[in-house]
Simulated assay, not measured.
Amino acid sequence: MKKEWQSMGCVTSKVPDIVGEGYHLKVRKTVAVGGSAKIMEVDPGGGKKPMIVKKMVAFSKREEERILLEIDLYKKLENNEFVIDLMAHIVDDITHYLLFDKYSQNFLEYIEELKIGGEVDELKHLKYFSGIVSAIEQLHGFEFAHLDIKPANILKSGDTIKMIDFGSATKMPIEIKTSADHHRHKEDAEELCSMMYRAPELFNCEIGSTLTTAVDVWALGVCLYEFLYLENPFNKIYEQGGSIALATQSPHMIKWNENRHISEKSINLIKSILIVDPNQRPTIGELRAKVDNLLANFDTPEEAENPEITDEEFDLGMRETT
């Protein structure tokens, strides 16, 4: 299972200053610690606003390659307004520091705030989702899957949102040809992809199957549910000790409109994404088109499904066919 970030609150730090690429950064505190990185708040000096540093140590060639890949993807995506800007990459021997602007919160924290007393603005949240789809669509254009799309990896400040953490990104497609492939990629999925957002095929990695960027589309569907319902669709199963792997095989069991009224249009969009067979899910381009269409027609009255035919209409229809 992928190691989640652990918030460190306001833990003070006495680590040395970070110097390089024209920056002299004083570490103010450690914000969070993950499986392979530490997130720190730093002071850039000169009266400038605090910034954030992601610290990673490359103990192996594979770790170094993954760090350099993450940096390369930030550069490829630097013109996307929904991807955070990498301000600097500072290297000290095997230690790498990635410098970013600081945002007020991540989307998971925002969701937790809404749970306490806020209301879901469905249209606004769909627009947020549209931005994330835009970022992932460009990433998929480079034949990479993000592999760890989740609200905690979306930063928010006001109405500005930014996708972050491309450290799990993986080249796609991946063919599972042998038992060794099966074990290696199943372990990779457990390490790189948070369980609650993991696509069904990532739990199995069956021999003869092919992993594609459709894994991200599934994660986006889970995120959209969470954007609108303020909880993960598999939370109750997880809290009860059930198998998330099995739950993803039965998305038709997901509950709708138990506590919140969400439009049928949005519900149908999520249902069109959370499909077990990855080949039946929309591509990221098709998903963007679906979202654009939903936003463009959001205020259009919903058509009733299977309207009941009156006796008069039935009799008239029968007379017209005879």
Score class of each variant (00 low, 15 high):
137 E>F: 10
47 G>W: 05
310 T>H: 12
226 E>G: 05
192 L>K: 11
265 K>D: 02
273 I>T: 10
141 G>H: 05
106 N>R: 08
11 V>L: 13
259 N>P: 00
176 I>N: 01
156 K>V: 13
80 N>A: 04
7 S>C: 07
177 K>W: 04
232 N>Y: 07
124 K>Y: 01
202 L>T: 05
236 K>I: 03
4 E>H: 11
96 H>C: 00
49 K>Q: 11
172 M>I: 11
147 L>D: 00
158 G>T: 05
121 D>A: 10
304 A>N: 12
127 K>W: 03
142 F>Q: 01
82 F>A: 08
39 I>G: 08
181 D>W: 01
182 H>P: 01
182 H>W: 03
217 V>N: 13
321 T>F: 12
148 D>C: 04
217 V>L: 12
252 H>I: 04
36 S>W: 10
255 K>L: 06
20 G>M: 06
177 K>R: 14
307 P>H: 10
107 F>G: 00
125 H>Q: 15
213 T>K: 15
178 T>V: 03
89 H>P: 02
23 Y>C: 02
305 E>D: 08
134 S>E: 15
51 M>C: 08
55 K>H: 02
295 L>P: 10
125 H>I: 09
61 K>N: 01
6 Q>E: 15
170 T>H: 07
100 F>H: 06
3 K>A: 15
162 K>C: 01
61 K>S: 08
112 E>T: 03
313 E>D: 15
303 E>M: 13
215 V>C: 13
203 F>P: 09
257 N>P: 04
299 D>I: 03
203 F>I: 02
238 Y>A: 14
321 T>W: 09
114 L>N: 02
237 I>T: 13
82 F>K: 12
58 A>P: 07
